[in-house]
């Protein structure tokens, strides 16, 4: 009896050790012989080296001009509407110049810009602080530059929210599902306790469609490959003066604003 108990404990101990050590060893063995899992790409998938968005604010005068974009984004991504401001979830929203570009506001900003609403979203930074701090790689950078989230891996530590200098991330302080007006079955709803944010419509790019906000923008938004000199975004950037949010932080935002 005693010896069998001891044996059990021994085996249990060794297995526990093995289970704990395996993922660590996997990381150490960098050039492991097991090939990366193959993922099939869709036929119409849109690809790029680094996706970027240029927002022509001259074409978006009032908050009403932003509403259709925000509405469609919320709708297709199952973004809930909460009464309690503390629980708010935001993917795409409007901010005034002084909040969109804090510390960049000139003393005598022209009237148009002063009272205008600017589209605010995740910048899909080149060197994203949120990716750097995530302890589980639930937030990660894709090879096309999009900063994505794995809602099933996120432990809800909210380190990414502290790290993001743009306030682009939201946390599910409660179950969001009862607060979604009309659920879109083609996109996952989230559970309580995980972080979320704009995904540059990765799910639409995969089937050959541009981001929903771009489609709804009547040409005010241009989306394309920043790495391709022939792309439309590069053409727009060449011929217009653009600014980015908090350039001094070195995060390299992929969202540009023509002001």
């Amino acid at each position: 009896m005693k010896s069998s108990r001891r044996r059990f404990l021994k085996i249990a101990g060794i297995s526990a050790l093995g289970l704990g050590a395996k993922p660590v060893l996997d990381v150490m063995a960098s050039s492991s012989e097991t090939a990366a899992p193959k993922t099939a790409k869709g036929e119409n998938v849109l690809t790029a080296k680094r996706w970027a968005l240029v927002i022509d604010t001259r074409k978006l005068q009032s908050e009403e001009d932003l509403d259709p974009m925000i509405e469609i984004c919320d709708k297709i991504h199952n973004v809930p509407k909460f009464e309690n401001k503390n629980h708010e979830i935001k993917w795409l929203w409007a901010e005034e110049f002084k909040h969109e570009f804090p510390m960049q506001e000139p003393d005598f900003l022209n009237d148009r810009l002063k009272h205008m609403s600017f589209l605010t979203l995740c910048n899909h930074c080149e060197k994203a602080p949120c990716v750097r701090v995530c302890p589980t790689k639930a937030t990660f950078k894709r090879e096309d530059g999009i900063v994505l989230m794995d809602f099933h891996r996120c432990i809800g530590c909210r380190f990414c929210m502290a790290a993001c200098p743009y306030g682009s991330r939201s946390f599910n302080f409660r179950d969001p599902r009862p607060f979604i007006k009309e659920t879109n079955p083609d996109f996952p709803t989230r559970t309580k306790g995980v972080v979320e944010k704009c995904n540059f419509c990765a799910e639409r790019l995969a089937v050959g469609k541009l981001p929903a906000c771009v489609e709804a923008s009547n040409g005010a938004l241009t989306f394309g490959d920043l790495d391709d000199p022939e792309s439309e975004v590069r053409a727009v950037l060449r011929s217009n003066y653009t600014i980015r949010r908090k350039p001094a932080l070195g995060t390299g935002p992929s969202v540009f604003y023509i002001v």
Binding site: V24, V27, V133, P135, G156, R158, V194
Partner: peptide, 24 residues
């Protein structure tokens, strides 16, 4: 730290997916 987690039952993800670039 544990009570601060939004998804406490997933806490072992920190061990399953060790990420040395995270200070956490």
């Amino acid at each position: 730290i544990f009570v601060d987690l939004g998804q406490p039952i997933r806490v072992v993800n920190v061990l399953l997916h060790p990420t040395p670039n995270s200070i956490l």
